[in-house]
């Protein structure tokens, strides 16, 4: 036998169809907003990682040294914490690069092998900030046979500042949208519950406990939340597909990420429906008059 609260919760969805649709729509809008920000944040994180990888390159210019010594420095750099990749650029390779970049005019500078050998270090994204890079530079500079260590300090500062500003703006907007969504959902659920004040009043009058009265509303709220999640996932999927046709550079999501995202959305809908209906009905029960 289906428990009374579930039966009534399901029936409530049918009986008060208008208020149920309103509450479900409000929750769908809220979840789409939240989901959209999760996706945007995720995409932005990809862009920021890419940018950091570009900026987080450190060049170790070596003094005149033997191949064995250069190889040892290369190994040492690779084993340094925070280093993602290393590349050894010999004097010959440096000249080749110079020639590739400057073409025929490069010959003017040619006076033997004037460019030093170097090790190009690509730093892990987590280490791409002024402090970490400075300490890496200090460490590399202290090594024997390392003549000079450089990285693009002004570009890094600029990227760092802009990313900070962008993430602050993003989080502020996300916070505002989240507050507005919660407000919208709470008010819609409150209205939906108000439309059934007669039922609540009757239950209180005949001696139903507050917990008993709350249960069907919570079941209904959870159901609305789950339906909203499914709708929001579908809307977000359509938006993502449309966005990728216009901006193909946008990263696609792996199957495991999609499943995790869907579960998160379902959980968010469940939570929104539960907390929204529970708090609204609790507040209503506190103030309802029986006459």
């Amino acid at each position: 036998m289906i428990p009374y609260a579930i039966k009534e919760g399901l029936a409530g969805f049918r009986r008060a169809s208008f208020s149920s649709v309103a509450a479900t729509s409000a929750m769908t809008v809220a979840l789409v907003m939240v989901g959209l920000f999760v996706i945007i944040t995720w995409q932005a994180r990809g862009v920021s990682e890419w940018l950091k990888q570009r900026v987080g390159e450190v060049e170790l210019f070596l003094e005149d040294t033997t191949n064995e010594m250069a190889e040892a420095l290369y190994q040492r750099a690779q084993a340094t914490p925070g280093v993602a990749e290393t590349e050894y650029i010999s004097r010959e390779r440096a000249q080749e690069i110079f020639r590739e970049e400057f073409g025929e005019e490069a010959e003017v500078f040619f006076d033997g092998a004037f460019l030093p050998a170097s090790i190009r270090v690509r730093v892990e994204p987590a280490y791409v900030n002024t402090d970490s890079l400075n300490s890496l530079v200090t460490e590399f500079s202290s090594w024997n046979r390392v003549d000079e260590v450089v990285y693009n300090r002004p570009l890094l500062a600029k990227v760092q500042d802009n990313l900070q500003l962008l993430s602050m703006i993003g989080f502020s907007i996300c916070f505002l949208v989240l507050i507005a969504s919660i407000f919208l959902v709470a008010n819609t659920i409150r209205l939906a519950i108000y439309s059934r004040r007669l039922m609540i009043r009757t239950m209180k009058l005949v001696g139903a406990t507050d917990g008993f009265i709350r249960k069907p509303f919570i079941v209904e709220g959870i159901l609305q939340g789950l339906i909203s999640s499914v709708l929001a996932i579908f809307i977000l999927w359509v938006l993502h597909v449309v966005a990728r046709t216009y901006v193909p550079q946008l990263a696609g999501m792996e199957a495991s990420s999609v499943i995790m995202f869907a579960f998160l959305m379902l959980f968010a809908g469940f939570l929104l429906g539960w907390v929204g209906s529970e708090s609204a009905v609790r507040r209503f029960l506190k103030h309802i008059s029986l006459h």
């Binding site: 007669l198 039922m199 009757t202 001696g207 029986l290 006459h291």
Partner: peptide, 23 residues
């Protein structure tokens, strides 16, 4: 407050406006 429902089970209340559930 948690005991009031149990008190109300021993009462029957009738109002002038019938307060029946229309659906």
């Amino acid at each position: 407050a948690s005991e009031i429902p149990y008190l109300r089970r021993s009462l029957g209340v009738v109002f002038q406006d019938f307060q029946l559930l229309p659906d």
